[in-house]
């Protein structure tokens, strides 16, 4: 379902939107996928208002835009979390225990794959393959890779990250809560 934005929180400044759409349509012509990618890159999801506006500007019926937006895995109609956790669900990761890792993440964060936490702080997604099978199972937290995971190791990494994220800005460093060194985590396995 499309989610309309209330004014304010998470809402899209219309002026911004107009510029982004015009520029993207100019560059990408008829390619809906490319325009939607530009919108998502800017807003971190596809806001309903942006899709409606795109439909008005291009004359493409909203239902056709909606069809493209829901056909592809990488588009999201709801805002993604401030911190994004992606677990690889490729075959190698699967035979090396990725589903147990995903379950453990769900337990620590209280959200399932495809969901965003109620406070909007983090989201969990699975992808088909990240292509670093030598270090399976793998998860990526805000762009940083963690490999050779086990449920216990995953819990350790996420518990410390979560504590850091939930602290008011600035306090994390003072309290010495830093990421588990990724190089350390993947070594020696």
């Amino acid at each position: 379902m499309l989610q309309d934005d209330a004014e304010g929180g998470g809402g899209v400044a219309l002026k911004d939107l107009d510029d982004i759409l015009s520029e993207s349509i100019r560059r990408n012509g008829e390619s809906l996928v490319a325009v939607l990618q530009d919108i998502q890159e800017h807003y971190n999801y596809l806001p309903e208002r942006a899709l409606r506006s795109l439909s008005r500007k291009t004359g493409v019926p909203l239902i056709d835009i909606y069809r493209v937006a829901t056909f592809y895995n990488s588009f999201s109609l709801v805002p993604r979390g401030k911190h994004q956790i992606v677990v690889c669900a490729g075959t190698t990761c699967h035979v090396r225990g990725a589903s147990k890792v995903t379950e453990e993440i769900s337990r620590v964060l209280g959200i399932g794959p495809g969901q965003v936490s109620a406070d909007g702080n983090f989201s969990l997604d699975t992808v088909n393959c990240l292509g670093c099978c030598a270090f399976a199972p793998v998860m990526v937290v805000d762009g940083e890779y963690h490999g050779n995971l086990t449920p216990a190791k995953t819990r350790k990494i996420l518990t410390s990250l979560k504590a850091k994220w939930l602290l008011p800005a600035g306090e994390a460093d003072e309290r010495g809560l830093v990421d588990d060194g990724d190089a350390e985590e993947t070594e020696g396995a």
């Binding site: 008829e30 056909f71 592809y72 990488s74 588009f75």
Partner: peptide, 20 residues
């Protein structure tokens, strides 16, 4: 934009045009 079926050539060609 993430769809396994787009590896199939006729699907890929449509997707490359920015369609479903």
């Amino acid at each position: 934009a993430g769809a396994f079926v787009c590896g199939e050539e006729t699907a890929l060609l449509l997707s490359a045009e920015g369609k479903v």
